[in-house]
Design a protein around this nucleic acid. Structure first.
Lengths: 335, 335
DNA sequence: GCTCCGAATGTTAACGCTAACAGATTTGAT
DNA sequence: ATCAAATCTGTTAGCGTTAACATTCGGAGC
C-alpha cells in the first residue's frame, strides 16, 4: 500500500499543471537559476495542488549525494552513548542531513565492520562510530582512506578523527578531590578492560595516586552494571581500612552504595564514594553522588563537525577533546 | 573526498571485467533468474576485484523501494523509548530494512508532523512514531491513509496501528500488590498529564482502589524525573498516615526513596514504595525497588511486525498489547 | 528599426539500475 | 539427426532527477 495505486507525482506532472518545463520546476525547488516571480508562483501552486514531493532516489542518483550519514551505535542503554546519538542527530538535522543507525549488540571487530559495511550499502556519505572499545578501535584500523569515518571516544591509534571526553582528566579530578579530603588512598572499581573509557579512567586514577606518592590498591574490575558495583562493594566492605572509592561510572557507584548500606558501612561517614557520568539520577542516590559530568550534547556536535570537515577532505588524524567537570555532592561530603 | 577522485564501479564495469552483460551481473547479485555456476563465479570474482557495491539510489529509483523505515523518537534518555528503538532497529535489520531516525526535542503536534514530513522526504517506506504523548496522538489523527504509519504506546484514537504495553494492567498489579500487604490506601506520584502512559497508569491505580472500595488520595503530579519524585516525597513525608506509594516510574521512585531517607522515614518499615519500568538500576536502589517490568525488546519486535503488516495493506486499526510483569523487591518487603 | 546582451525558459542527455522481452544455447525426446 | 522445451544470456527502455547547453524573449543603446 506504499503508494496506494496511483503513482507519486513527478517533476513532469508538476510541469504539466503549471504549464512550464520540468526544468523550471526543478529550478524553483532548488533555487538554482532565475525564475520569474509569477512563474514561480504558478509552479508553487501546482506543487501544492499535486502534493508533489521530490524523489530523493532520483536526486541522489544524479547528484551522487544522498544527504545521509550513518551512525554505528552500541545497543545499550548506557547514558553516554544514547545522549551522544541525540547530539549527533540534532547537529546533522540542522545541517540538512538524515541519520541512519546500525546498532551492534556486542562490540567486536567483525560486528563493527559489518555495521559499517551495512551503512555503506545504504550509500551514506560518512560514518560515525560510537563504540568506545578497544575492539572498535581495532576494527577502525582497517578503515578505508577514501571514505570518511570518525570515531567517538575510542580508537586512539586508528587512522580516523576521534572525539572524546578527556577521561583521564576526569578521573584525575575525582581522585584529587578524594585525596584532598585526607584519605590515605583511593580504591577504584573499573569498567570492563576492553572499554577505552575504562582504561583511561583507570589510568587517570593510577597516575594521580602515583603523583601523590600514595599506595595504589589493586583495581577491582566491574562491567559498568550496578550488579558488578554491588559485588565490588561487598568485597570492599570486608576491607578494614577502606576509606574512599572511585567508581568507573554512576551505575557501579550505585551498586557500591547499595552494598555499603547492607553492610552497615555509612557513606560518607565511613567511606567516601565518587562516580563518573553524572546520570540524571545521580543527584538522588542515597546519598547523592559526587561524580564527573560529561557534556554529551557537545560531544555530538563536535563529532558531526569533525565528520563534515573530514568529508571536505580534512585530516584523518584530527582529534577533539571535551573537558569534563567534577560535580561534588554528599557522597564525598563532610562527615 | 567522498569518492576520492575515481568513480565508484558500476554494474557495467563489473560486466566488462567478467566478460558478460550488465544484466547477468544484476542477476547474480539479486539471485533473480538462472546463471551458470561458472559464469556466476566469474562475476563474483569481478565484483570482488573491483570492490563493487550496488548503487542503492539507482536501485530505489527503478524499484520504487528504498528499504528504509523511519522512526520518530523523543529525544530523551528515558529507558523505555531508547530500548524500544533498539528493539525496532534489530527487527528491521534482520528483515533487511535500514532505520532512519528523526528526533523530536519536545513532543508537540507540529514538531511530530515536521519529523514525519522530514522522513517522508527521505523516501522511507513506513514510519514508526515513538511518542507516547497525547499530542503525538493528536498529530497522528491527521496521518494520511495512503502511507503506513504506526505508533508505539500512544494515540488510541488515531487511525494508525498502535503497539503498547498494558499500562493499566501494570498499574493494577502494583496497586493490588500494595493493597494486599494490608495498606489502607495507596498514594500515586503520576507522570506528566500529557503522557498517555502516565494517564493509563493513573487510571489503573485509581480503578483498583475504587474496586477495593478504599479512599482515593489526591494524585501527586511529577514529570518522570527523580527531582520531581524527590519533591513529591518531601511533601508526602509530612503526611502523618502515609503507608504506601506507587510511583509512575522508577526515576521518580528513586526521588521518593531519597526524600524519605532524608526525612527519616524508613522504606519499607514506615512506608512501602513501588515503581514502574524496572530500569537496570532498580534492583540496586536503597532499598531495592519493587516495580513493573516492561519488555521493550518485545515491543520493538511487535512494532516492526505491525508496520510491515500495514505496509502490506493491513488494517489501520490494528492493536497489539504487551503484558507487563510485577517484580517484587525489598521496597515492598516485610517490615 | 536593428543589434546585442542578459534574463528566463526549454531540450537533451546522462546517472546506475531493474523489468520486459528477445535471442542464443543447451537438453531431452523422438 | 531434429525439433521443442528448457535454460541461460543479451538488448532495450525507462525510473525522476540535475547538468549542460540551446533557445527565446525583452529591453537598452545606437
Amino acid at each position: 500500500m506504499t503508494a496506494a495505486g496511483t503513482r507519486q507525482p513527478s517533476l513532469t506532472d508538476v510541469a504539466g499543471v503549471a504549464g512550464v518545463s520540468h526544468m523550471t520546476v526543478s529550478r524553483v525547488i532548488n533555487g538554482t537559476g532565475p525564475v520569474r516571480p509569477e512563474t514561480r508562483a504558478r509552479v508553487l501552486a501546482a506543487i501544492e495542488e499535486l502534493g508533489y514531493r521530490p524523489n530523493s532516489a532520483a536526486r541522489a542518483l544524479v547528484t551522487g549525494r544522498t544527504g545521509t550519514l550513518g551512525v554505528v551505535a552500541l545497543e545499550s542503554n548506557l547514558y553516554g552513548p544514547a545522549s551522544t546519538l541525540y547530539g549527533i542527530e540534532n547537529a546533522a538535522r540542522e545541517a540538512g542531513y538524515a541519520i541512519t543507525i546500525s546498532s551492534v549488540s556486542r562490540p567486536g571487530r567483525s560486528s563493527i565492520a559489518d555495521a559499517v559495511e551495512n551503512l555503506r550499502r545504504q550509500a551514506v556519505e560518512g560514518i560515525i562510530v560510537i563504540a568506545p572499545h578497544v575492539t572498535a578501535g581495532r576494527a577502525l584500523e582497517a578503515a578505508p582512506a577514501d571514505f570518511p569515518v570518525v570515531a567517538v571516544g575510542g580508537g586512539e591509534a586508528a587512522p580516523v578523527p576521534v572525539i572524546s571526553v578527556d577521561q583521564r582528566d576526569g578521573a584525575r579530578r575525582a581522585t584529587e578531590h578524594l585525596l584532598a579530603l585526607g584519605h590515605r588512598t583511593v580504591w577504584h572499581v573499573a569498567g570492563p578492560e576492553d572499554w577505552l573509557e575504562a582504561r583511561d579512567r583507570e589510568l587517570g586514577w593510577r597516575e594521580t595516586l602515583e603523583r601523590h606518592g600514595v599506595d595504589v590498591p589493586e583495581v577491582i574490575r566491574g562491567d559498568w552494571s550496578s550488579r558488578s558495583g554491588y559485588e565490588a562493594g561487598r568485597s570492599l566492605a570486608k576491607e578494614g581500612d577502606l576509606d574512599a572509592v572511585f567508581a568507573g561510572n554512576d551505575q557501579m557507584a550505585l551498586g557500591l552504595l547499595r552494598a555499603f548500606a547492607e553492610a552497615g558501612v555509612s557513606v560518607p561517614r565511613d567511606v567516601r564514594v565518587a562516580g563518573f557520568d553524572d546520570v540524571p539520577e545521580a543527584a538522588y542516590f542515597t546519598p547523592p553522588l559526587t561524580t564527573v559530568r560529561q557534556d554529551f550534547i557537545e560531544v555530538g556536535r563536535r563529532t558531526f563537525g569533525l565528520l563534515t570537515q573530514r568529508m571536505d577532505g580534512g585530516d584523518r588524524h584530527a582529534r577533539a577533546l571535551v573537558v569534563p567537570e567534577l560535580i561534588v555532592r554528599e557522597s564525598t561530603g563532610p562527615r
